[in-house]
Protein backbone atom coordinates (compact mmCIF):
# COMPACT_ATOMS: atom_id res chain seq x y z
CA UNK A 1 0.00 0.00 0.00
CA UNK A 2 2.72 2.43 1.01
CA UNK A 3 4.77 1.80 -2.13
CA UNK A 4 1.73 2.04 -4.36
CA UNK A 5 0.94 5.39 -2.83
CA UNK A 6 4.53 6.51 -3.37
CA UNK A 7 4.42 5.49 -7.04
CA UNK A 8 1.06 7.10 -7.75
CA UNK A 9 2.34 10.19 -5.93
CA UNK A 10 5.45 10.16 -8.09
CA UNK A 11 3.34 9.95 -11.23
CA UNK A 12 1.16 12.86 -10.17
CA UNK A 13 4.32 14.66 -9.08
CA UNK A 14 5.71 14.27 -12.60
CA UNK A 15 2.65 16.06 -13.98
CA UNK A 16 3.07 18.87 -11.46
CA UNK A 17 6.74 18.97 -12.33
CA UNK A 18 6.00 19.36 -16.05
CA UNK A 19 3.52 22.17 -15.47
CA UNK A 20 5.88 23.84 -13.00
CA UNK A 21 8.62 23.48 -15.60
CA UNK A 22 6.43 25.41 -18.03
CA UNK A 23 6.01 28.18 -15.44
CA UNK A 24 9.72 28.32 -14.76
CA UNK A 25 10.93 28.29 -18.37
CA UNK A 26 8.69 31.17 -19.39
CA UNK A 27 9.42 33.06 -16.19
CA UNK A 28 13.17 32.69 -16.52
CA UNK A 29 13.32 33.99 -20.06
CA UNK A 30 10.62 36.64 -19.99
CA UNK A 31 9.92 37.40 -16.29
CA UNK A 32 6.24 36.66 -16.94
CA UNK A 33 4.42 34.26 -14.61
CA UNK A 34 2.10 32.49 -17.01
CA UNK A 35 -1.07 31.72 -15.11
CA UNK A 36 -2.58 30.26 -18.27
CA UNK A 37 -0.14 27.32 -18.17
CA UNK A 38 -2.77 24.94 -16.76
CA UNK A 39 -5.31 25.97 -19.39
CA UNK A 40 -2.79 25.63 -22.19
CA UNK A 41 -2.28 22.11 -20.88
CA UNK A 42 -6.04 21.53 -21.12
CA UNK A 43 -6.07 22.75 -24.72
CA UNK A 44 -3.20 20.39 -25.51
CA UNK A 45 -5.10 17.43 -24.08
CA UNK A 46 -8.22 18.33 -26.05
CA UNK A 47 -6.29 18.76 -29.29
CA UNK A 48 -4.76 15.31 -28.78
CA UNK A 49 -8.25 13.93 -28.07
CA UNK A 50 -9.65 15.56 -31.20
CA UNK A 51 -6.96 14.27 -33.54
CA UNK A 52 -6.83 10.78 -32.03
CA UNK A 53 -10.43 9.97 -31.21
CA UNK A 54 -12.53 12.28 -33.37
CA UNK A 55 -10.39 12.27 -36.52
CA UNK A 56 -8.83 8.81 -36.06
CA UNK A 57 -5.32 9.99 -36.94
CA UNK A 58 -2.67 7.29 -36.30
CA UNK A 59 -1.15 7.55 -32.85
CA UNK A 60 2.37 8.88 -33.42
CA UNK A 61 1.18 11.28 -36.11
CA UNK A 62 -1.62 12.55 -33.87
CA UNK A 63 0.79 13.28 -31.03
CA UNK A 64 3.20 15.03 -33.42
CA UNK A 65 0.37 17.12 -34.87
CA UNK A 66 -0.73 18.07 -31.36
CA UNK A 67 2.76 19.16 -30.38
CA UNK A 68 3.27 21.20 -33.55
CA UNK A 69 -0.13 22.81 -33.15
CA UNK A 70 0.60 23.66 -29.51
CA UNK A 71 4.00 25.14 -30.37
CA UNK A 72 2.30 27.48 -32.84
CA UNK A 73 -0.42 28.15 -30.29
CA UNK A 74 2.14 29.29 -27.71
CA UNK A 75 3.90 31.46 -30.29
CA UNK A 76 0.63 33.13 -31.28
CA UNK A 77 -0.23 33.96 -27.66
CA UNK A 78 3.20 35.53 -27.23
CA UNK A 79 3.15 37.40 -30.54
CA UNK A 80 -0.41 38.71 -30.41
CA UNK A 81 -1.06 39.33 -26.73
CA UNK A 82 2.25 39.72 -24.93
CA UNK A 83 4.78 41.21 -27.35
CA UNK A 84 2.84 44.47 -27.72
CA UNK A 85 3.19 44.82 -23.94
CA UNK A 86 6.99 44.65 -23.87
CA UNK A 87 8.16 47.59 -21.82
CA UNK A 88 4.91 47.75 -19.83
CA UNK A 89 4.94 46.69 -16.16
CA UNK A 90 5.28 42.91 -15.73
CA UNK A 91 2.09 43.03 -13.68
CA UNK A 92 0.11 43.98 -16.80
CA UNK A 93 1.42 40.93 -18.66
CA UNK A 94 0.57 38.63 -15.75
CA UNK A 95 -3.00 39.97 -15.83
CA UNK A 96 -3.08 39.15 -19.54
CA UNK A 97 -2.07 35.55 -18.84
CA UNK A 98 -4.89 35.27 -16.27
CA UNK A 99 -7.29 36.55 -18.90
CA UNK A 100 -5.93 34.10 -21.48
CA UNK A 101 -6.61 31.27 -19.01
CA UNK A 102 -10.25 32.30 -18.51
CA UNK A 103 -10.69 32.81 -22.24
CA UNK A 104 -9.27 29.38 -23.08
CA UNK A 105 -11.56 27.71 -20.56
CA UNK A 106 -14.69 29.32 -22.01
CA UNK A 107 -13.71 28.75 -25.63
CA UNK A 108 -12.85 25.12 -24.86
CA UNK A 109 -16.28 24.78 -23.25
CA UNK A 110 -17.90 26.14 -26.42
CA UNK A 111 -15.93 23.82 -28.70
CA UNK A 112 -15.81 20.56 -26.73
CA UNK A 113 -18.72 21.09 -24.34
CA UNK A 114 -18.78 21.00 -20.56
CA UNK A 115 -19.06 17.26 -19.99
CA UNK A 116 -16.23 15.07 -18.83
CA UNK A 117 -14.52 12.74 -21.27
CA UNK A 118 -12.69 9.51 -20.75
CA UNK A 119 -9.43 9.66 -22.68
CA UNK A 120 -6.71 7.07 -22.24
CA UNK A 121 -4.40 8.78 -24.76
CA UNK A 122 -3.31 5.40 -26.07
CA UNK A 123 -2.02 4.22 -22.69
CA UNK A 124 -3.27 0.86 -21.48
CA UNK A 125 -3.93 0.48 -17.78
CA UNK A 126 -2.78 -2.90 -16.53
CA UNK A 127 -1.21 -3.92 -13.28
CA UNK A 128 2.54 -4.45 -13.37
CA UNK A 129 4.06 -6.53 -10.59
CA UNK A 130 7.42 -5.28 -9.48
CA UNK A 131 9.27 -6.50 -6.39
CA UNK A 132 6.05 -7.72 -4.81
CA UNK A 133 4.23 -4.44 -5.41
CA UNK A 134 1.41 -4.07 -7.90
CA UNK A 135 1.79 -0.88 -9.92
CA UNK A 136 -0.29 0.76 -12.63
CA UNK A 137 1.33 0.74 -16.07
CA UNK A 138 0.01 4.26 -16.66
CA UNK A 139 1.99 5.57 -13.71
CA UNK A 140 5.12 4.00 -15.14
CA UNK A 141 4.38 5.54 -18.54
CA UNK A 142 4.02 8.98 -17.00
CA UNK A 143 7.32 8.69 -15.18
CA UNK A 144 9.12 7.32 -18.22
CA UNK A 145 7.91 10.07 -20.55
CA UNK A 146 8.73 12.74 -17.98
CA UNK A 147 12.28 11.49 -17.54
CA UNK A 148 12.84 11.39 -21.32
CA UNK A 149 11.38 14.87 -21.77
CA UNK A 150 13.49 16.35 -19.00
CA UNK A 151 16.57 14.69 -20.49
CA UNK A 152 15.78 16.16 -23.92
CA UNK A 153 15.25 19.61 -22.43
CA UNK A 154 18.53 19.31 -20.56
CA UNK A 155 20.42 18.68 -23.78
CA UNK A 156 18.51 21.42 -25.54
CA UNK A 157 19.30 24.08 -22.94
CA UNK A 158 22.90 23.16 -22.32
CA UNK A 159 24.12 22.20 -25.75
CA UNK A 160 22.25 23.87 -28.57
CA UNK A 161 22.66 27.40 -29.84
CA UNK A 162 19.00 28.27 -29.22
CA UNK A 163 19.15 26.76 -25.73
CA UNK A 164 22.19 28.85 -24.85
CA UNK A 165 20.51 31.93 -26.36
CA UNK A 166 17.53 31.40 -24.05
CA UNK A 167 19.77 30.95 -21.02
CA UNK A 168 21.74 34.11 -21.90
CA UNK A 169 18.57 36.13 -22.47
CA UNK A 170 17.21 35.07 -19.10
CA UNK A 171 20.31 36.42 -17.39
CA UNK A 172 20.88 39.67 -19.23
CA UNK A 173 18.76 40.85 -22.14
CA UNK A 174 20.93 43.82 -23.07
CA UNK A 175 24.08 41.72 -23.19
CA UNK A 176 22.21 39.03 -25.13
CA UNK A 177 21.42 41.56 -27.87
CA UNK A 178 25.09 42.46 -28.10
CA UNK A 179 26.04 38.78 -28.49
CA UNK A 180 23.88 38.70 -31.60
CA UNK A 181 20.90 37.01 -29.97
CA UNK A 182 17.50 37.98 -31.38
CA UNK A 183 15.63 38.37 -28.11
CA UNK A 184 12.19 38.47 -29.76
CA UNK A 185 12.81 35.09 -31.38
CA UNK A 186 13.92 33.75 -28.01
CA UNK A 187 10.61 34.85 -26.45
CA UNK A 188 8.67 33.26 -29.26
CA UNK A 189 10.56 29.98 -28.93
CA UNK A 190 10.26 29.78 -25.17
CA UNK A 191 6.48 30.14 -25.43
CA UNK A 192 6.46 27.36 -27.99
CA UNK A 193 8.47 25.13 -25.67
CA UNK A 194 6.27 26.08 -22.70
CA UNK A 195 3.14 25.09 -24.65
CA UNK A 196 4.68 21.80 -25.84
CA UNK A 197 5.62 20.83 -22.27
CA UNK A 198 2.10 21.77 -21.13
CA UNK A 199 0.52 19.66 -23.88
CA UNK A 200 2.60 16.63 -22.90
CA UNK A 201 1.54 17.14 -19.28
CA UNK A 202 -2.09 17.28 -20.43
CA UNK A 203 -1.82 14.10 -22.49
CA UNK A 204 -0.22 12.29 -19.54
CA UNK A 205 -2.77 13.62 -17.06
CA UNK A 206 -5.91 12.67 -19.02
CA UNK A 207 -5.75 8.88 -18.33
CA UNK A 208 -5.41 9.28 -14.55
CA UNK A 209 -7.94 12.09 -14.26
CA UNK A 210 -10.64 12.99 -16.72
CA UNK A 211 -10.58 15.21 -19.72
CA UNK A 212 -12.60 18.28 -18.90
CA UNK A 213 -12.60 21.97 -19.87
CA UNK A 214 -11.80 22.77 -16.26
CA UNK A 215 -8.81 20.45 -15.79
CA UNK A 216 -6.41 23.39 -15.96
CA UNK A 217 -7.09 24.13 -12.28
CA UNK A 218 -4.36 21.60 -11.59
CA UNK A 219 -1.93 24.19 -12.91
CA UNK A 220 -2.59 26.10 -9.71
CA UNK A 221 -1.11 23.23 -7.73
CA UNK A 222 1.99 23.28 -9.88
CA UNK A 223 2.51 26.83 -8.67
CA UNK A 224 3.40 25.77 -5.08
CA UNK A 225 5.67 23.17 -6.69
CA UNK A 226 7.57 25.87 -8.56
CA UNK A 227 7.82 28.05 -5.45
CA UNK A 228 8.99 25.10 -3.34
CA UNK A 229 11.79 24.33 -5.79
CA UNK A 230 12.76 27.97 -6.05
CA UNK A 231 10.94 29.93 -8.73
CA UNK A 232 13.22 30.23 -11.72
CA UNK A 233 15.10 26.97 -11.11
CA UNK A 234 14.56 24.11 -13.56
CA UNK A 235 15.75 21.29 -11.25
CA UNK A 236 13.74 23.01 -8.51
CA UNK A 237 10.52 22.75 -10.51
CA UNK A 238 11.05 19.01 -10.98
CA UNK A 239 11.96 18.28 -7.36
CA UNK A 240 9.19 20.60 -6.11
CA UNK A 241 6.59 18.88 -8.29
CA UNK A 242 7.59 15.45 -7.09
CA UNK A 243 7.60 16.47 -3.41
CA UNK A 244 4.11 17.96 -3.76
CA UNK A 245 2.81 14.91 -5.64
CA UNK A 246 4.15 12.38 -3.15
CA UNK A 247 3.11 14.29 -0.02
CA UNK A 248 -0.35 14.78 -1.45
CA UNK A 249 -0.68 11.08 -2.15
CA UNK A 250 0.51 10.10 1.33
CA UNK A 251 -1.68 12.73 2.98
CA UNK A 252 -4.68 11.17 1.25
CA UNK A 253 -4.05 7.88 3.05
CA UNK A 254 -2.52 8.75 6.40
CA UNK A 255 -4.21 12.03 7.25
CA UNK A 256 -7.90 12.74 7.86
CA UNK A 257 -10.11 13.47 4.85
CA UNK A 258 -9.71 16.89 3.24
CA UNK A 259 -5.98 17.10 3.80
CA UNK A 260 -5.16 15.70 0.36
CA UNK A 261 -6.52 18.75 -1.44
CA UNK A 262 -4.84 21.24 0.87
CA UNK A 263 -1.40 19.61 1.19
CA UNK A 264 0.11 21.65 -1.65
CA UNK A 265 -1.00 24.91 -0.08
CA UNK A 266 0.16 23.95 3.41
CA UNK A 267 3.59 23.17 1.94
CA UNK A 268 3.54 26.50 0.07
CA UNK A 269 2.88 28.45 3.28
CA UNK A 270 5.59 26.57 5.21
CA UNK A 271 8.11 27.18 2.43
CA UNK A 272 7.31 30.87 2.30
CA UNK A 273 7.77 31.09 6.08
CA UNK A 274 11.04 29.23 6.48
CA UNK A 275 12.82 29.34 3.12
CA UNK A 276 11.16 31.82 0.77
CA UNK A 277 13.80 31.40 -1.93
CA UNK A 278 12.92 27.68 -2.23
CA UNK A 279 15.16 24.63 -2.36
CA UNK A 280 17.31 25.59 -5.34
CA UNK A 281 16.49 29.29 -5.29
CA UNK A 282 19.23 31.81 -5.86
CA UNK A 283 18.91 34.78 -3.62
CA UNK A 284 18.91 37.88 -5.75
CA UNK A 285 21.76 40.15 -4.82
CA UNK A 286 21.86 43.62 -6.23
CA UNK A 287 25.02 45.63 -6.06
CA UNK A 288 24.26 48.95 -4.44
Amino acid sequence: MFWQMIVSGLAMGCIYALIALGFVLIYKATEIVNFAQGDIMMVGAFVAYTTLILFHVPYILAILMTLVFMALFGMVIERVLLRPLIGEPVFAMIMVTLAVGILLRSVAGMIWGYETYRFSAGMVDQPVRFAGVSLSSIHLWIMGVTVILIGALYFFFNRTKMGISIEATSQNQLAAFLMGIGVKRVFSNIWAIGAIVAAIAGILLSPIQFLNYNMGYIGLKAFPAAVLGGFGSVPGAIVGGIIIGVSESLAGVYLPGGFKETTAWIILIIVLLIRPEGIFGIQQQKRV
Partner: peptide, 10 residues
Protein backbone atom coordinates in the same frame (compact mmCIF):
# COMPACT_ATOMS: atom_id res chain seq x y z
CA UNK B 1 29.65 48.78 -21.01
CA UNK B 2 30.46 51.30 -18.34
CA UNK B 3 28.42 49.36 -15.77
CA UNK B 4 29.38 45.81 -16.72
CA UNK B 5 26.67 43.78 -18.44
CA UNK B 6 27.71 40.16 -17.95
CA UNK B 7 25.74 36.94 -17.50
CA UNK B 8 26.22 36.92 -13.76
CA UNK B 9 25.26 33.31 -12.98
CA UNK B 10 27.54 31.87 -15.65
Amino acid sequence: FQNIELFSNM
